[in-house]
């Protein structure tokens, strides 16, 4: 990106003092799931779990870029819907179109992220409102484009990423493509956030924009890039969800809040400055594990909502207390 480097102090601050508690919570939940349903230790059990959680994990890993930079991206759910509906329109069950359609979708993702970023940085509209407006608009665009319902099928080659499993492998027996995609994109997002100057600049902006500005961080450019990363991850999640489950009109509903929840469970600080990609992915897996566990327990939807609400509040309350103790 640029060759700006930040003061040493910022770099030291970013080192976490101890292991993020989300990993323990995730481990405990997985143990609970195994106790409930021993079949979970079979490859098909945990691989299916990872396959289903992959879109949310990737989405949340992108969302955390915007959160760390001090904003929100509420438009990601509508990007997912737009990707599924738009791809079905463009593909029309033609496998040869797969690659250019995917390219077009990522192009749309860049466009959406760019507009979000420009509106926030130059029109100074708070990201909550800017991306809320984008969410409403994109849902409308998806419907206008399709006339209310998708008009084509998703070709199998497009659905490969979300649906296909490699089978007859040694040891793990099956390996869903979605899990490979999660590993690759998860690592790429981790690398970009925690091993590059861009990641340092995103943290710096969220932590203290004024100081970052004085340190020569190109604030607007970095924030726009954060929004673009988030939108691109939403496109990836959309391609995987469309692949997993096929065409429908309301695929993306609710994913924006789930992604933010996952980031928060992973210890990301709303309004910026702190957040980690691996912990966010763990947060997404935790959220999925909670749903899976409640499912196995046979609890009805309302109870799941209540538990989700309680966990959300508890996670943040605990994080706040921890920060007070460690002085951060």
């Amino acid at each position: 990106m640029t060759d700006n480097t930040l003061p040493q102090a910022d770099r030291q601050k970013r080192q976490l003092p101890q292991v993020n508690p989300v990993y323990f919570v995730l481990a405990a939940l997985i143990v609970a799931i195994i106790l409930q349903n021993p079949a979970f230790v079979e490859p098909t059990g945990y691989m299916n779990f990872l396959k289903r959680a992959a879109p949310l994990a990737i989405l949340a890993a992108g969302q955390v870029y915007v959160i760390v930079s001090g904003g929100f991206d509420l438009s990601v759910g509508s990007v997912i819907t737009l990707v599924v509906v738009g791809s079905s329109m463009l593909l029309n069950n033609d496998p040869n179109a797969t690659w250019w359609v995917i390219a077009v979708m990522f192009g749309i993702g860049i466009g959406v992220g760019l507009i979000n970023g420009l509106v926030v940085c130059y029109l100074k509209v708070p990201s909550l409102i800017a991306t809320l407006g984008m969410m409403i608009t994109l849902n409308g665009v998806a419907f206008m484009w399709s006339g209310g319902a998708p008009r084509g099928y998703l070709a199998d080659s497009f659905r490969f990423f979300g649906r296909y499993n490699f089978t007859d492998l040694p040891v793990i027996r099956i390996l869903p493509v979605a899990v490979i995609v999660l590993l690759v994109l998860g690592y790429a997002l981790y690398w970009l956030m925690h091993r590059t100057n861009l990641g340092r600049m995103i943290h710096a902006i969220g932590d203290n924009p004024r100081a970052a500005n004085l340190a020569g961080v190109p604030i607007n450019r970095v924030r726009i890039i954060a929004f673009i990363v988030s939108s691109l991850s939403a496109v990836a999640a959309g391609i995987m969800l469309g692949g997993f489950a096929g065409v429908s009109t309301d695929v993306g509903i609710g994913y924006e809040l789930q992604a933010i929840t996952a980031a928060v469970l992973g210890g990301a600080l709303l309004l910026g400055g702190r957040g980690s990609v691996p912990a966010t992915i763990a947060g997404a897996l935790t959220l999925s594990a909670i749903f899976t566990l409640l499912n196995f327990l046979g609890l009805p939807q309302p109870v799941r909502q209540i538990v989700q609400g309680l966990i959300l509040i508890a996670a943040v309350a605990i994080a706040v207390q921890r920060r007070k103790h460690t002085g951060r």
Binding site: V119, L123, V125, I129, A130, L132, G133, M134, M135, I136, T137, L138, N139, G140, V141, F143, M144, G148
Partner: peptide, 12 residues
């Protein structure tokens, strides 16, 4: 559907 698109733009 056009209503939604316009509403989103108007809010922003």
């Amino acid at each position: 559907f056009a209503k939604q698109v316009l509403r989103g733009i108007i809010i922003v």
